[in-house]
């Protein structure tokens, strides 16, 4: 039973990593560029939303099984409070921080229509902190006897970093438009 939980925890962890990276990349394409076809933006926006929310389910599974299995000592407190685990407190703690940020991003997104745009955006941008935190957590705790799983984490890291460097230089069409309108001044 314990062994089963351990496998389940690892599997959901890897799926979460892939979903997180996909969500992050989709979010960046949404903000960084306006697609030529409205249908594309719509699909990207929908996928970003639903994969982001779907990931929460996998992560809850990942965290719950890590706490419940007794092979390593991780208590229920460590699910939400970082650096309290008996096992690898630093690397588990990074996972806890990532989980906390994710909950904040998910909750503010669910309530988006009821909170201010600034509050939503402020929390949403913490995703850029969440992603490397989760990545390091996954890499450091990933079982090294499974090169394939390691490879998934590394691939996520490379894909995410490529996307971030693209996002840094991307100029959104609307931003350009606003800049040029402001430059014209009032007449």
């Amino acid at each position: 039973m314990n062994e089963l939980l351990w496998y389940f925890s690892r599997a959901t962890g890897v799926v979460s990593m892939v979903l997180l990276t996909t969500t992050l990349v989709l979010g960046m394409t949404l903000s960084g560029r306006r697609s030529a076809r409205p249908a594309t933006s719509t699909v990207v926006a929908g996928l970003h939303r639903w994969l982001g929310l779907g990931m929460v389910a996998f992560l809850v599974g990942h965290v719950t099984t890590a706490v419940v299995e007794t092979y390593v000592s991780i208590g229920p407190l460590s699910a939400l409070v970082p650096f309290t685990a008996g096992y690898q407190p630093l690397w588990v703690g990074l996972g806890t921080i990532a989980f906390d940020i994710l909950l904040a991003v998910a909750v503010t997104s669910a309530l988006r229509h009821r909170i201010s745009e600034r509050a939503w955006r402020g929390v949403h941008l913490a995703s850029y902190l969440l992603w490397p935190t989760a990545l390091v957590h996954g890499f450091m705790l990933g079982t090294s006897d499974q090169p394939l799983l390691r490879l998934v984490t590394v691939a996520c890291g490379v894909a995410g970093m490529l996307a971030v460097s693209w996002r840094i230089q991307a100029t959104h069409h609307d931003r350009e438009h606003r800049r040029s309108v402001t430059a014209q001044g009032w007449s």
């Binding site: 306006r34 697609s35 076809r37 409205p38 249908a39 933006s41 719509t42 745009e117 069409h173 609307d174």
Partner: peptide, 12 residues
């Protein structure tokens, strides 16, 4: 003012 021209509305 808020619209950023994603075009989601036109698709839906």
């Amino acid at each position: 003012i808020a619209c950023t021209g994603h075009g989601v509305c036109a698709a839906l």
